[in-house]
Simulated scan of single mutants.
Amino acid sequence: MKKWSKLQKELYLIIDGKIDFQIHCVVYPMRGDRATSPCPRYWITIGKEIVFDYPKDFTDRNGHVQHHNRFVSEDANYPYYCDVSLISNLIREYIDTPVTDILTRKFENDYWGLTDILRAADKRIGKRRLDELRDSLNNEAAQKILKLRFKTLAENNTVTKE
Rank of each mutant, 00 (worst) to 15 (best):
D110K: 00
F58W: 08
I50V: 14
P29E: 08
R149P: 05
N69M: 12
I23Y: 00
L114T: 04
H68G: 09
I50F: 05
V26Q: 13
E132Q: 14
G63Y: 04
C25T: 08
N139W: 02
L153V: 06
L7E: 00
Q143E: 11
Q22V: 11
T104L: 11
C25W: 09
P55S: 03
C25Q: 09
H67W: 11
N62V: 07
N77C: 15
E49H: 07
T104H: 15
P55F: 03
D122E: 05
R119P: 02
Y12T: 13
W43G: 03
N156A: 10
M30N: 15
S73H: 11
P98L: 04
I91L: 05
P79M: 03
V84W: 01
N89M: 10
L146D: 01
P79H: 02
E162W: 14
Q22R: 14
P98K: 03
D110W: 03
W112K: 05
P98T: 02
W4V: 04
A154E: 08
R31T: 12
Y80R: 07
R134S: 14
D60Q: 06
L90T: 02
D116V: 05
F58K: 04
M30Y: 15
E155D: 12
T100K: 14
R124T: 04
K151H: 10
R92M: 13
R129Q: 15
T36Y: 06
T158F: 10
F71M: 01
G32Y: 06
R61E: 07
V159P: 05
R149N: 07
Y111W: 09
H67S: 10
V99E: 09
L114C: 04
W4I: 03
L130A: 11
Q143K: 15
E108N: 11
W43S: 07
Y54S: 01
Y94A: 02
T45E: 15
G63V: 02
E108H: 10
T104P: 05
I15K: 01
T158P: 07
S5T: 09
A76F: 07
R92L: 15
I102E: 01
N69A: 06
K144N: 03
L146M: 06
K3R: 13
I15V: 04
E132M: 12
E74V: 12
R31W: 12
I91R: 00
Y81C: 09
Q66C: 10
R129P: 05
I117R: 00
K106S: 12
P29V: 07
D96N: 14
E93M: 08
H68D: 13
F52S: 01
P98D: 03
Y12R: 13
F58Q: 03
K147F: 12
D20F: 14
T158A: 11
Y28V: 09
Y78N: 04
I91D: 01
E132K: 13
K6H: 15
K9L: 14
T152Y: 09
D83S: 07
P98C: 01
K18A: 11
I46R: 01
A142K: 00
I23Q: 00
M1S: 13
L11M: 07
I19W: 00
C25Y: 10
P40D: 05
